[in-house]
Amino acid sequence: MSKVIIVTDSTADIPPSLAKHFDITVVPLKVHFGDETYHDGVDLDSDGFYKKLSESDVMPTTSQPTPHQFEEVYRKLHDEHPEAAILSIHLSANLSGTYQSAHIASQNVAEEIDVTVIDSKKASYAIGVIVVEVAELASGGSDKEACLERVEELLDETTVLFMVDTMEYLEKNGRIGKASALIGSLLKIKPILSLNDDGEVYPFEKARGNKKAVQRIIDEFKKRFGEDPVHVGISHANAEAEANALMERLKTEFHVEKDVVTNIGPVIGTHVGPGTLSLSFARVK
């Protein structure tokens, strides 16, 4: 048994097969369509979400797990593995209250269970890269200190750049100003977005059209990672063909040691909308 158990949340957009392989516990956030509530990845998957989004007159909203839900997860894992430490790695605290819920839960069980809660300051598979890399270490028998050291490295160097098909969802969910969304749509500008050191969405650059935006992202990753071996994740919102084609291109231009193409799930999809492509890179040790 591993000395360390990894917990994350559904916004990490880790493929279920990968989560199962590394024994990663995923706590779901919720998506609300009016009075209907769904658990991200549990009773509403990506395909069902984007279909519902296209048919619904209601803009969905999202909510984080409660501290009680996290506490139940921590207690269950502790009952199953009483000697293990738990590392709980979550969506940027500046984008969601998920980290805060997990932190409160960890304080509630602190006298009984060794739980360390970490703000990834990332979203989607940019969290997933960190979680999967650390879960692989843990599955190999690395202790808590070694896993935390690797987390710190990955928090510093994991880079995400993403493109949205429309700025409508970012604007409606309060992630970007109405004027910026309108101007971008009128000029057919493709914004390249990222997350800053505080885990907030910011405009990295603007390009005219998809082709130029993709090339700019590739150029930026070449500058940052060069020929180093990398773990690359592409998460997509109902754009699987584009994501797969882009991954094949990346494999010819980078030293890709690990590659994951995954769906942007319902919660992140609520905020970025269909057609989004997100690229996450980290060095492999």
Rank of each mutant, 00 (worst) to 15 (best):
V230A: 08
D228Q: 15
A213Q: 12
S17V: 06
E257R: 01
E152F: 06
E83M: 02
T11K: 07
M59W: 08
T276M: 15
D13Y: 08
R249M: 04
I113L: 04
K20V: 05
V115Y: 00
E220P: 05
S88M: 05
K30N: 10
E145G: 07
L95Q: 01
E168D: 15
E71I: 00
L95C: 01
K76N: 11
V134T: 06
A239I: 01
E36C: 11
K76H: 10
T62W: 07
D40W: 06
G273C: 10
Y74H: 09
G128C: 03
V261K: 09
I89T: 07
G269F: 01
V214Y: 11
V26R: 12
D259M: 12
L77M: 00
S106Y: 03
D143G: 12
V117N: 03
D228V: 09
G141A: 07
F254Q: 13
V261S: 03
S56K: 00
V117M: 02
I5R: 00
L77K: 01
P65F: 07
L250K: 07
E112F: 06
V256N: 09
F221M: 15
I89L: 11
S56I: 00
P266R: 13
A138P: 06
A110K: 14
R150W: 01
P65T: 04
L18T: 03
E253L: 11
Y74N: 11
F254L: 12
A110H: 12
L29Q: 13
N210R: 09
V201I: 15
S56Q: 02
V4T: 03
E80C: 00
E200A: 05
K52I: 02
A126V: 00
E55Q: 14
S142M: 13
Y202G: 09
E205K: 15
F254R: 08
D23L: 03
S96G: 06
V31I: 15
S92I: 09
T98L: 12
V284C: 10
L161F: 11
L137C: 06
V284D: 07
